[in-house]
Each structure stands twice: as C-alpha cells, then as structure tokens.
Design a protein around this nucleic acid. Structure first.
Length: 269
DNA sequence: ACTATGTCCTGCGAGC
DNA sequence: TGCTCGCAGGACATAG
C-alpha cells in the first residue's frame, strides 16, 4: 500500500523520467470513482498540450506541476489509493487490466495509470498543499501539539491525514513499535517524552523506507513498474504471532480505528 | 469540534 | 480442482 515512502519513490522516479516531456493526448477512464472534483473531460483538456515541469510528492499525492500557457500553475494530482500504479512505458507494452489513464508523451512513451481497486483519485489543483503537516520536517513542538487533548487512539491519530501527511497502516505500526508505545493509548495521554520518541521513530522508519525505495509488500511498483527493489525489515506490521525482534514475545494483532494493528504486548506500553 | 463507523473496490488465500 | 467467502485499507460520508 502506497504510503509516504512509496509515493515519494514513485514521484522521484517519474520526475527523473518525464520532467520536461509534453503530454500530447490523453485517454481517461469514465469510471466515476476516480473523480471527485473535476470531470474527466476537464482534466483531459488541462493535461493535453501541457509540459511536465516536475513531479513531486505532497502527502500521499503525486503532484504533476504543469507548464501551460492557458492554465498557469495548473497541477495534476494523482492519489494512488491502495493499488494505484503510475507507469512510463513503450506504447507497445501490453495494456494491463484496470488501466484508467493513458497519456501519450512527446518523447514517444506513454504514462499510464493502473488501479485495480479504484481507490485512487485524479484531480486538478493550483498550489496544492494537502490537509496536514509533513512528518519529515515537523518540529518537536508542533508534533506534540498535534495530539494535545485528543481522545482517540494514537494509532488512529497517526493515520489522520489532517494531522500528519503520509502515514498509513504499516508505518504507523512500525513507528509505534520503535517508540515502545501501545497503539491503543489515547493520543492526548502521551507524555512529551513519549511523543518525542514517536516522532523520532516515525522519521527514522520513513527515511529508512525512502532509502530502500519503498516497502514493496503487495501492489506497489516503482515508476518503471519493476517489482520490489529492496524491502525494509518490518518489526511489527504483518508479524502476528511471530516473536518480537527485541524480546521474543509473540506479536499481537488487534483492530484499532477499523485497521489491523500489530504490536508487542511487552515492549509497547 | 471530535470521534466512530460504514462504504467503496478487486484480488488473493483459506477452507471445504 | 474449483468454488465461496472473508479480508486487505485510504479517505470520505454519515451519524452520534
């Protein structure tokens, strides 16, 4: 599932490959779930003829900064959802099932968006910022302030994109493991020192994952559609029943905020 | 203003 | 072998 490190990897890969290229024509699916803000016709009209000034990540979104005389500062925003993939391929390449976007590039290649589960979203923006704060640059004071007075479980708070950008189910579990904090703790009850540890653990695991090119568990592919790269060693997520890497106690699985949650009942209090 | 829960969607693995 | 069923979860809608 694409979280911050995976989206970062995808965006960097795309920036490297298509920056400066021009979108000559676009085909967009009419599946309505992909569109919340604009209709496909409007998106297509904006994309066609636009030069890709750059590709970057904001929150869990891939942002294409477009350079186009008639719509200045236009941005194409792609959310990968659970299973979204952005591929840059030769036009001869076999068309995958669930392809929702085909953009023909001046260089002769095609940018394609494939998303079987259709949790992804396509939209247009200008000056896109996202609803919350980027975890890699937030300071300790602001981090502590995010959770003050909140009654929901810290795990659920970490997943809230209006607070922190880009943390999903995997890295939430991993950050809490590294910080030794039980996912069910009410966010507002965490001590300043605990939140400092949580911030440090989160930043560490996110940076490790970015350095490894994303954790490729299920549906994630990099910008070239290649399987895998490296995988970081997960210490909690998906390790139900397996021994804690620190104390050997079996990792427990519970549900928090409607999401599967993994933790060590001994190390995380 | 918060928080909790249901919903969308397909592929895959478990179980029979 | 082939089928059904349940689960996976990001973000939003809705309810409390």
């Amino acid at each position: 599932m694409p979280e911050l490190p995976e989206v970062e990897t995808v965006a960097r890969g795309l920036d490297q490959r298509i920056r400066g290229d021009v979108i000559e024509s676009v085909w967009l699916t009419d599946k309505p779930q992909l569109y919340r803000k604009q209709k496909p016709a409007e998106i297509a009209a904006t994309l066609e003829g636009a030069k890709v000034a750059g590709v970057r990540r904001v929150a869990k979104h891939v942002v294409f900064d477009l350079d186009k005389p008639k719509s200045e500062h236009a941005q194409w925003i792609v959310h990968l959802g659970m299973t979204g993939n952005l591929l840059v391929v030769d036009p001869q390449r076999e068309l995958k099932k669930h392809t929702h976007v085909i953009a023909k590039l001046k260089s002769g290649r095609e940018l394609r968006f494939v998303d079987p589960r259709r949790f992804g979203k396509l939209s247009l923006h200008t000056g896109f910022e996202g609803p919350g704060t980027e975890p890699l640059t937030i300071g300790v004071e602001d981090f502590v302030e995010l959770f003050r007075g909140r009654k929901l479980a810290i795990k659920a708070a970490l997943l809230n994109q209006s607070l922190l950008h880009g943390v999903g189910n995997i890295y939430a579990d991993e950050a809490l493991f590294r910080a030794g904090i039980r996912p069910t703790r009410r966010a507002g009850t965490l001590k300043r020192e605990e939140l400092k540890k949580l911030r440090a653990g989160l930043i560490r695991v996110l940076n490790e994952a970015i350095a490894a090119g994303g954790t490729s568990i299920n549906d994630y592919r990099d910008a070239e559609g290649a399987e895998g790269l490296f995988e970081i060693k997960l210490r909690a997520y998906g390790r139900t029943g397996e021994p804690c890497l620190r104390c050997k106690t079996p990792i427990k699985r519970i549900v928090v905020g409607g999401r599967s949650t993994h933790y060590c009942p001994r190390c995380q209090r």
